[in-house]
Design a protein around this nucleic acid. Sequence first.
DNA 1: GTTTTTATTGACTGAGCAGTCAATCAAGCG
DNA 2: CGCTTGATTGACTGCTCAGTCAATAAAAAC
Lengths: 197, 197
Amino acid sequence: MPKIGMEPLRRRALIDAAILAIGERGSLDVTMSEIAGRAGVSPALAHHYFGGKEDLLAATMRHLLAELGRDTVAALRRADGARARISAIVATNFSPSQFRSETIAAWLAFYVEAQRSDAMRRLLRVYARRLHSNLASALVELMPRLEALRAAEAIAAMIDGLYIRRALKQGEPDARSAIALVEDYLAIKIARETPSA
Amino acid sequence: MPKIGMEPLRRRALIDAAILAIGERGSLDVTMSEIAGRAGVSPALAHHYFGGKEDLLAATMRHLLAELGRDTVAALRRADGARARISAIVATNFSPSQFRSETIAAWLAFYVEAQRSDAMRRLLRVYARRLHSNLASALVELMPRLEALRAAEAIAAMIDGLYIRRALKQGEPDARSAIALVEDYLAIKIARETPSA
DNA sequence: GTTTTTATTGACTGAGCAGTCAATCAAGCG
DNA sequence: CGCTTGATTGACTGCTCAGTCAATAAAAAC
């Protein structure tokens, strides 16, 4: 029973199903049938709307990226001052909507895929650059430029590292302690580098 | 022309070939034929010696783990004092024998695999625990126990994060700046937490 | 009410790949 | 010199899966 304007609905459902499937399998080694099945459609329809598996996966990655971007922008708008902006960025990366097993697994899987696929690598670089520049733009208000850039890299590395390490544990992710670790670094780094004041 | 006592040679050659292949493809999605071909033998022989693909991959991971373990022990023996031991651990993780594109890609791929395979997860947990306990045992000599444990997790996360972020870049890995980031954290953390002295 | 467009699928194909097996070849061994 | 044992492979078997296509059916357009 065909209905009208199904394209956006189906695309969305397929992307959601892909995240779910990838999160459960823990890798991009999911079949189109699996994804389509979860979305309640036939595999053929998934091909119809996305062209191929690569395209579906790329769209899924883009979706994840966009979601994180939106969350970050929203959190940034709510933050008052440089210091608060950094905390907002960190908190967003470990917020319940981002720091879930499925999402973590998907990010990890996409990192691996980025080694093979130029498209994926480009996408992930967008994420890395955005994170770095958001952090750096706040940090330069708190310490000398050079130290700010270093701190931005250190924080970014810690965040990614906490994600990857999370993959080894089972049960629900512990965002609180992850945030605490990053905030601890932030606190001592700012204390150390703040020019007198 | 069969020769005698080939088993250890073949196993080693196949593992080396597996690391190479995984490093190049950037994922565990390598065929037995590919690996066997690189090792100069038929796919059937790879099955003969390892039983199945999973077993070959597990053996490969174990090899990587053992190599890192040996390097770490050696570096630790050369280090004098708690502070030097930490630097030795960090330096080992970013040493040329570990911080190479193939090895990095392989580690990343195994992390992903760990989400699916209990065997892999157990293996990786061995690595994580060892790293953490090596770091912690040196850090407790430099700061209060609780802070030492936190610092150990932070450093471990930074190391893993620098590995994963490395995967996005091209060209040879830059170990120096990676080490500098971790050492910077270490320095300010020690300065901050050292009881007076 | 006929034609076009959109939605949807079942059935199929072709490729790639893990794993098997029987056969071959060369050493050592009695 | 037969015999066992280890090394090695080619050829083969299923299986899984991405991608295709023609067919169907409902809505839209005219």
